[in-house]
Design a protein around this nucleic acid. Structure first.
Lengths: 197, 197, 197, 197
DNA sequence: CATGAATGAGTCTTCATTCAT
DNA sequence: AATGAATGAAGACTCATTCAT
C-alpha cells in the first residue's frame, strides 16, 4: 500500500522544519535567516523544505498558527477553574515561562520586521484575539468578584496586561542584564499593581 | 581655502539622509528597505548616499546615536528641576509623545530585526544606559523623599519603567485598535501604580 | 509465468502517458511543461512516469516516433493506388486534417525549441525522411504522367510541398485570425499552383 | 556634468545585450538560454543585464520590437516606388535575405516556445500587423493593375505570402539539406505562382 | 508494479557597494 | 561634491530524477 507513505512521519518532519525555522528566525531575524540555514538546521535538503512549505514566509505563518493553537489549548484547559484572579496570574506566569525558551523573545523580534505583510498581520491579529478572548471572561469574573479594579473596562485591562507582557519579552530579547527568572516575581507584582482596585 | 564647500550644507544633507532612512526603515524594516529607496526618499543619487555613509548599517547607527543624543539633551534640560516624581512622569510622557511620530514605533520594530549585529547591540546598550542614567538620580531622589516605593532598588525600578514603555511602543507598532492619545493617561497611571510605595 | 502482469495494460498506460505529454507540451512548450503536470494530466504518480520513460526528453522522442509511424502507415495504406496526383493531394489534406487536433500545432512549436538536442534533430530528420520517401514515388510518377512540373527535381518538389505545409501549420499555431477549415481549399490550391507544369 | 553619463553609450550597450540575447535564444531556445549565458556572450555582469532589462522576457520583447521597427522602416523606404509587383517580390527577397543571418531561423523557433505569454503574443501580433499593413497597399495596387490574381482578397493574399515565408524559415531552421541561397529563386517563383492571376 | 517523499543542482533576480566621470 | 552605471555575491525557489516502501 504505497499510497501515503506515512502521515505521522510527514507530520513529524513538518514539525521539525517548523522548529528549525523558529531557531533560525530567532537567531537571525526573518530576512537574514536563509532557507539554506533552516535546511541545514533541520538536516534536510532545500527541496524537502519547499516540499513542505511553499515559501519561506509560509513557515513563519505555520509557527504563528502553532503558537496560537497552543494558547487556545491552554485556555481550554482552564475552563473548569473557579478563581478568576488566579487564572489571570497563571496566564501571566505561563507566558513568562514560555519566554524561558530562549528562542521565543528573539522570534518575537523577528516577527516585528515583517509587519508589512498582511498575511502576517492577520495571523498576529488572530493570535491577539485568542489571547484577548481567553483572558476576557476571567477578567470580567474577577471584576465581578471585586478582585480587580472596575474603573477600566475588562477589554482595556486585557490589553494592558498584554502591554506589560510585551514589554517583558522585549527586555528579555534585548539580552540586557535582566534575569528573567528573578524578574518573574516582579512581573506578576506589576500586573497585580496594574489590576489592583 | 575652504575645504568643504559648505560644512553647514553637508550637515543638513546628512540629516536629510538620516531622516529619509528613518522613514524607510520604519515603513519597510531594515533588510527590506533598500538603499535605492532611501535615496529616492532623500532625493539623492546612490553615489551621494555612500558619500555620506559607508554602509547601510551605518545610517542605522547614526539614527540611533541621534536619538540617544536627544535623550541626553532632554535629561540635561531637567537638571535644575526639584520635583523628582514629576520629572519621572514627564519623561514617561515625553517618551509617549515621541511615539506620536508615526515612524518611531515602526523604526523600533525595524531595529529589533538587527539585534544579531554587535554594533547595533552596543549602540542600543548605550542608549539604554543614557536613559537609565538619566532616570536613576530622579528615582533615587524620589525614593529619598518617599514619593515612590523603596522595596525595589532604584536600578530595577528604572528597568521596569522601561519595560512598561517598551510594551507601550510595541502595542502602537502593532497598529491594533489602540488609541495612543487616549491610552497616554493609562500609561502614566500604570507607571504610577508600578512606582507606588 | 507471465513477466509483466499484463503487457496490454502496460502498452495502454504508455500510450496514455504519451498522450498526456503531448497535451502538456502543446499547451506549455517542452521546457515549461513539468513532469509533474504530465503526471497530473495522465493521472499517475511521478514514480510511474519514470517507470515508463527514463527522462522527460524520452517521451518527446516517443511522441515523435509515434507520429512518424503513423505517417509511414498512411503511406503504406496508399500503396495500391494508381493516381499519383491524387495521392499527393490526399497527403496534403491528410496533413491538414491532422492539424485539426488542436494540440498538434502547439506541439510542433514546442518541438522547435528543442532543436539544439541531437536526438530530437535526428528523430525529426527521420520523420522528414519518411514523409519525403513516402511522397517521392508519387511525385516521380506524377512527373512521368505529366501531371506536374518537371523543371524541378522530384526531390525538391517534395521539399517545397513540405515548406508550404510547414507554413500552414505555423499559421494555425499562431492562432491569428486564420480559419484552418476555410483555408484548406486555399492550401490545396497553393500546392497545386506550386506543382503545376 | 555627471547627470546622464552618456546616452549614446547606454543605447549602444543596450543593443549589444539585445544582440547577445538574440544569439543565445537562437542557439539554445528561450527557456534553455540562461541570463548567465547572455551576460557571458555580451561580456557583462549579471547586474548590468538587469540594469538594462527588468526580466529575461523583456529582452525577448525588445528583440521583437527591434525587428518590427526594421520592417516598418523597410516599408517606409519603399513609399515612392511605382511597381507594386516588384515591391512585393522585393519584400520576399528582403525577408529571405534577413534569414541569411544564421541566427534568425533559430530565433524564430525560440519564440515559438513562448507563445503562452500574452505579452509575446501581442508583440508578435503587432509585428504581423506591420508586415500585413506594409504589404496590403502593394497587393491591392497589383490587383488593380492586373498583375496578380483577384479571386482572393488582398488580405488573404498577404496572409498566404506570409504562410510561404514562414514555411521557408522553418525549413532553414531545421538545418536539413536545404541551401537557402539556391532556394531563393524557388521561393520567389513559389510566391509568383501563388499570386499568378 | 506503483507511489510520492526526498533531493540538490541550477535559475532568475535583487541589491549593497564601487568608481569613472 | 555628486552622480548613476556597473558589478557579482547571495538568496528564494523549481523541477527532473531517485529510491524506499
Amino acid at each position: 500500500m504505497p499510497r501515503t507513505v506515512d502521515p505521522a512521519k510527514h507530520h513529524a518532519r513538518r514539525l521539525a522544519i517548523i522548529d528549525a525555522a523558529l531557531t533560525c528566525f530567532a537567531a537571525e531575524g526573518f530576512d537574514r535567516a536563509t532557507t539554506a540555514s533552516i535546511c541545514r538546521t533541520a538536516g534536510i535538503g532545500s527541496g524537502t523544505f519547499f516540499h513542505y512549505f511553499p515559501t519561506k514566509q509560509s513557515v513563519l505563518l505555520a509557527i504563528l498558527d502553532h503558537g496560537t493553537a497552543e494558547t487556545a489549548d491552554w485556555f481550554a484547559a482552564q475552563r473548569e477553574r473557579t478563581d478568576p484572579a488566579a487564572v489571570i496570574a497563571d496566564y501571566v506566569l505561563h507566558t513568562a515561562d514560555e519566554f524561558s525558551d530562549p528562542r521565543v523573545p528573539g522570534f518575537v523580534k523577528a516577527v516585528g520586521s515583517v509587519l508589512a505583510d498582511p498575511d502576517i498581520v492577520s495571523a498576529l491579529a488572530h493570535d491577539e484575539t485568542v489571547v484577548h478572548d481567553g483572558l476576557l471572561p476571567w477578567v470580567l469574573a474577577a471584576q465581578r468578584t471585586g478582585d480587580i479594579r472596575t474603573d477600566l473596562s475588562a477589554d482595556r485591562l486585557c490589553i494592558w496586561i498584554m502591554v506589560v507582557l510585551d514589554g517583558f519579552v522585549d527586555r528579555i530579547a534585548a539580552r540586557l542584564p535582566f534575569d528573567a527568572a528573578a524578574e518573574r516575581d516582579q512581573l506578576i507584582d506589576t500586573v497585580r499593581r496594574l489590576l489592583a482596585p
